[in-house]
Amino acid sequence: MQSIDLRGVTCPTNFVMAKLELEDVEVGTTVEFFLDDGEPVKNVPRSLKDEGHKLLGLQEREGYYVLTLEKGGE
């Protein structure tokens, strides 16, 4: 599975980067993102869901979060 590390990237750059990464992914593919705790994890998952992707999981690891999602259609 493709992992995209967005740790150390602040809002809203992290969301825009996630969006750009997802453009190169096939619909239905599962991808994971690493997100910092705080504002990034509060904002990015919800914004990606609003873009039509399916959130499969969000789990805390040591000091950061792993968001798993399936790329949605147009």
């Binding site: 994890v41 998952p45 969000l58 789990q59 805390e60």
Partner: peptide
Amino acid sequence: CISCGLCAKS
């Protein structure tokens, strides 16, 4: 709910 815990934390 996918049990991420964000709501409780926020």
